[in-house]
């Protein structure tokens, strides 16, 4: 699947840019640290839009296309904003055999968005993830850092209600 590119306007602040430039300054001596810079940039902005990738490309002395190529290779990098509440459903084996696929499908229906999309109000975004290691709690999903385990489809409304 091609990575979804955000079409919402970029809202970076001068403070964020200053922080990014500091990170680049610390790493620019070694081009192999590109990914580390991108990871920290994503920590700052939440995603890696072209405005951010161009600063990284220029600062690290690599083509923008290379940064983009890397950003579309690794699942962790996002080209679109995350919602205020980012829901991630584990589709690892243990969770899958315990029905996490159902959870994922149902969430898409409830929220009216597809995978890696954000609701128009910016509240929820939804993605699937690989094993987060909470196999003992399977099936699990996370909302931001909160983990919900031993779930069934019936639990979803109650979980979402907490964030509405």
């Amino acid at each position: 699947m091609q990575k979804k590119i955000s079409n919402l306007p970029f809202k970076g602040t001068p403070e964020q840019e200053a922080a990014l430039r500091r990170i680049i300054a610390d790493n620019a001596h070694d081009k192999s640290r590109l990914m580390a810079v991108m990871q920290q940039a994503q920590d700052i902005y939440g995603y890696l839009p072209i405005e951010v990738q161009a600063i990284i490309a220029e600062g690290m002395g690599v083509p923008l296309e290379k940064v983009y190529g890397v950003s579309t290779f690794y699942a962790q990098f996002s080209l679109s904003q995350k919602g205020q509440y980012s829901i991630s459903v584990c589709l690892g084996t243990a969770c899958y055999v315990k029905g996490s696929g159902e959870l994922f499908n149902r969430l898409q229906e409830i929220l009216g968005i597809g995978a890696d999309e954000c609701t128009p109000d910016g509240r929820f975004s939804l993605s699937a993830c690989r094993c987060i290691g909470a196999c003992g709690l399977a099936p699990v999903l996370t909302v931001n850092d909160e983990v919900y385990g031993r779930l069934s489809v019936k639990d979803l409304d109650a979980i979402l209600a907490k964030y509405n």
């Binding site: 192999s32 990914m35 690794y74 962790q76 690989r130």
Partner: peptide
């Protein structure tokens, strides 16, 4: 060095390519 979510990086040459800052 942190990976970024690519299973193939468990393959040793891909892992090295990734450490070098490339698509793994």
């Amino acid at each position: 060095r942190l990976g970024a979510g690519a299973f193939v990086c468990g393959e040793e040459t891909a892992l090295m390519t990734s450490i070098e800052g490339n698509r793994g």
